[in-house]
Amino acid sequence: MNAERDDHDGNPGASSRGLRSNNGPDGQNALRDARDPVLQALMREHSTETPSSSLDAAILAAAAQAVADVPRERKTATTSWRLWLPLAAAAVVAIVAFGLGPLTPTLPTDTQDLLRDEAAPVSPNVAPAENRKVAPAGDQKAPPAENRTVAPDQLGGVTTPSARDDREDRRETMPPMRAQENPPLARNRAMPAPGGLPDSPQPGAKIAAPFAVPPASSGQAGAAASDAADRAAQSLPRSESFTRPPSFRNNERAAEATEADGDLHEWIERIRALRDAGNVSGATRELARFRDAYPDADARLPDDLREWAKSLR
């Protein structure tokens, strides 16, 4: 093997491949001094030692084995990761579920607070009558902000206890009057019209006609109420808006506005009937109640009743 560096020439390694040694002039001189050609020839002659073939085979096998083991080691490492990855993922999920779960009780508490706020009773400082105010037909003004914030039931919200109480409170105010006044009304219908008033051929129709809300005005009132309710809903917290679908909310609001509108007309007709029946004290009392219930009661009255109401002031 001529490539092997066992040929003992003058400078055996200096002529080898690879990086050159940097022998300077001093180094060369020193080497020349320390070099004996005869001695080198003797060394060359007697350089017969070589590693055994078994030793060569063992070293080369070890070298090849070391290189071959690298992919296997990498493969083993990858395989072990593949085995451990699902376990690690499961452990992470378990830690998140059981470790962080107890740390998040604030979510249910917040939800309960929201629900409590939604079901909270109306502030006692605000009069129920004011809370019940709904934009009447023809009144395009938006309701006052304080009314908007304290009357969730008018916005078609969930029928909460406070809303139910409110409605019952309103009926407590009105039906007793109906109970008191309707029988006299019925009696009045049977009696001849006092004061030379012409007897209506259809007294019931005279009374009932105003109760029949024209569809157009009812639609306008419903639309106005719906608009007012929408405006109020926009001012509400977002969480409440999410609780019900908007169409359902609008329908319910429109129905309530129509009902309030019907009550208003019923009340006005009752006052008129009392007045027309000559029951001035009853009409006056009813007017006073009407004024208590509506601050702008005179503006809501029809022209004939408004003139009459002005004379009573």
Partner: peptide, 11 residues
């Protein structure tokens, strides 16, 4: 080292 490896004196 000088005989077998061919290293320089510095090496």
């Amino acid at each position: 080292l000088q005989q077998e490896s061919g290293l320089s004196l510095a090496e």
